[in-house]
């Protein structure tokens, strides 16, 4: 196990290196000049002076390989670089939005996993009944409808027509942290993201459970006189867990990644909104760091999923 972990960790390093080179190269190949964006409006007499200052400060006057080496060295020391669109250090830019994204996604993760696992099991157990058909139609609809459409429908109904929730934005904290105020602003984006993510996961759990339910050992368990509850949750579900774990672990990864469209529609100041702004303003360092972070999270969650497979299924050996 330890040997396996060491091997996996070591194998992550070249993957991250390749990703870093690709991200750096792609962001540098994007058209537009971030310094031009930063200093637009500066008087012609001061323009060259300002341009030279920022070009030197951002290290853009160096060759691309030199820029890469400088960036990766700084990154290794915990310095994420300078955001040209926010005019401040990247770490300052993403600190609060990261918290906001996590706050949003914790609710989404909780609701979507709870509902989808239960509904997926029920669909499998009651295959062909109204319950199964309802969730099948729900899944199909959920996967077909884009997130922004769901968002706009919810905004129209619950914010504009009924006025129950704010249309968008972030909660104001005039007298310190106010949980209810946060919840008011969270309900609609959480509902949107939950509905969208439910669609896929229900189907996944259902299929996995169906496969498990049709196995011989389930028939044996039933013939032994075990209750249906024990058969389903202790025998069938346990064996259906491996594919489900993949979803659960990858969902944990999404805790840290923003949903660009939903966050933008609701004006939620999360990582997705920040990434859109970074892309629109050619903020290379912010784009690289955020995507590198996402890639890292993805690799890490995959690694954790592999470890958990061995925990839930003794047949899997990690060598």
């Amino acid at each position: 196990m330890i040997k396996y972990c060491i091997k996996r960790v070591l194998s992550i390093i070249p993957v991250l290196f390749v990703i870093s080179v690709l991200l750096f190269g792609i962001s540098k190949a994007m058209p537009g000049d971030p310094v031009v964006h930063m200093i637009q409006g500066v008087k012609a007499e001061q323009y060259d002076q300002q341009y030279a200052y920022w070009e030197e400060r951002l290290g853009l006057d160096k060759s691309l390989p030199e820029q890469y080496v400088a960036w990766i060295s700084n990154l290794a020391q915990g310095e994420l670089g300078f955001s040209t669109s926010y005019n401040k250090q990247v770490v300052s830019v993403i600190k609060d939005p990261l918290v906001n994204t996590i706050a949003l996604n914790v609710f989404v993760l909780f609701f979507s996993l709870s509902i989808s696992i239960y509904a997926g099991i029920q669909c499998a157990v009651k295959k062909g009944t109204f319950v199964d058909r309802f969730w099948q139609v729900f899944s199909l609809t959920g996967r077909s409808v884009p997130a922004f459409f769901v968002s706009m429908c919810l905004i129209y109904l619950f914010a504009i027509k009924l006025g129950w929730f704010p249309i968008g934005g972030m909660p104001m904290q005039l007298d310190g942290f106010n949980l209810l105020e946060w919840l008011r602003y969270l309900v609609l984006p959480v509902t949107t993201l939950t509905l969208i993510s439910l669609a896929g996961t229900i189907q996944y759990v259902r299929n996995s459970m169906l496969e498990s339910i049709n196995q011989d050992y389930i028939r044996t368990a039933r013939s032994k006189g075990l209750t249906e509850k024990v058969v389903i949750y202790s025998h069938a579900f346990r064996n259906a867990l491996i594919p489900v774990i993949t979803i659960v672990i990858s969902s944990i990864g999404t805790l840290f990644t923003g949903s660009m469209i939903t966050e933008s529609v609701f004006g939620w100041e999360g990582l997705g909104t920040v990434l859109i702004k970074a892309l629109n303003s050619r903020d290379a360092m912010l784009i690289i760091v955020m995507n590198f972070f996402y890639a890292f999270i993805y690799i890490l969650t995959n690694f954790i999923a592999d470890l958990l497979y061995a925990v839930v299924d003794p047949r899997i050996k990690l060598d």
Partner: peptide, 13 residues
């Protein structure tokens, strides 16, 4: 909890 969240949140504006 989903319903509670909605109701509580509705009433706090």
């Amino acid at each position: 909890s989903l319903m509670g969240l909605s109701l509580v949140a509705c009433g706090s504006g």
